[in-house]
């Protein structure tokens, strides 16, 4: 026995199906969902494929400098996009580091954040950018900050009758640079630890800093006090090491096949140094 399949072509049709069908689930690129179905360890839900909804694809730059990415935009398309500016370039950088070319052809930003694997690349980037996620159901629309969207390990604030339609990355201050530093066992693997950094310098001092960690807890880790510690400093060894300590005290990594919790905490200061070095090196 297998479940039913729907292939709507508009958001309105899709949310109408989500509102009425029991045990229903969106299918985006299938790069996590189909892998799970292939294990045959649970009964297949009714699938609503979002692949034919054209209004969910593509990137748009707003007049205010924000960039809105449709939920069904593939990792490949984000990695190749040229509409991201100061600081926001961390988004295509991270997309280019997700998995392998064949997975990037199909996998989408909406699917990635809804799956909410703490070792995935987008969650930390959304957190560092202060991105907002747009959710829609049959009754209306709401916007959530990344910090409210990611709730727990593989758990988001998306309700069963809701779908994500877009992610909006706000403009960052002029002159800032975004750096995504991913540490993984081999090219294309999920991160052991990742650091998403947006940095602005002025006269040799740090004028703007946003940092988020991936792979260091059930949801992306941010530490406003670490950012405060960096801002105004010259980013000397002492500054970086106390900011790292502040970040680590917020982190709650698990031990798994990619590394022990202790090892992950050891990676944090090293990756932060690398990210800060890359951000300060002129392009």
């Amino acid at each position: 026995m297998s479940a039913a399949f729907h292939e709507p072509t508009t958001i309105a049709e899709a949310v109408a199906i989500l509102a009425t069908e029991p045990d229903v689930c969106c299918l985006a690129g299938g790069q996590s969902l189909v892998a799970a179905l292939n294990t045959r360890s649970f009964a297949a839900p009714t699938l609503v494929s979002l692949q034919r909804i054209e209004e969910l694809r593509g990137l748009r730059r707003g007049a205010d400098g924000s960039v809105t990415v449709g939920a069904m935009t593939t990792h490949r398309d984000v990695a190749r996009a040229d509409c991201f500016q100061a600081g926001q370039e961390i988004v295509p950088q991270a997309a280019a580091h997700i998995a392998h070319p064949a997975v990037r052809t199909m996998g989408t930003i909406g699917g990635s954040i809804c799956h909410a694997d703490p070792a995935a690349d987008y969650p930390g980037v959304l957190a560092a950018c202060g991105a907002t996620v747009t959710l829609v159901n049959a009754r209306g629309q709401r916007e959530l900050a990344a910090s409210d969207f990611f709730v727990d390990f593989l758990t988001t604030a998306v309700e069963p009758d809701e779908m994500v339609t877009a992610i909006t990355f706000p403009p960052m201050p002029e002159g800032t640079r975004g750096i995504y530093e991913k540490f993984c066992r081999s090219e294309g693997d999920f991160a052991t630890v990742s650091v998403a950094l947006i940095l602005g310098m002025h006269d040799g001092r740090c004028a703007f800093a946003r940092v988020a960690l991936g792979g260091c807890g059930p949801t992306p880790v941010r530490a406003p006090e670490a950012e405060t510690r960096l801002i105004g400093s010259r980013l000397d060894d002492d500054d970086i090491s106390s900011a790292s300590n502040l970040l680590c005290s917020r982190a709650a990594p698990q031990s798994d096949v990619r590394g022990s919790a202790e090892y992950r905490l050891m990676l944090v200061p090293r990756l932060l140094v690398r990210a800060l070095d890359r951000a300060r090196r002129r392009p």
């Binding site: 299918l27 690129g29 299938g30 790069q31 189909v34 892998a35 292939n38 699938l47 494929s49 490949r76 998995a99 392998h100 070319p101 064949a102 997975v103 052809t105 199909m106």
Partner: peptide
């Protein structure tokens, strides 16, 4: 059958995909 090994890579509309992860 999990998208990891790459043995099922085929072209779909000119781009590589994992046939095991495409319904």
């Amino acid at each position: 059958n999990q998208g990891v090994c790459g043995s099922c890579t085929v072209f779909c509309d000119g781009l590589p995909i994992r046939a095991c992860l495409a319904l």
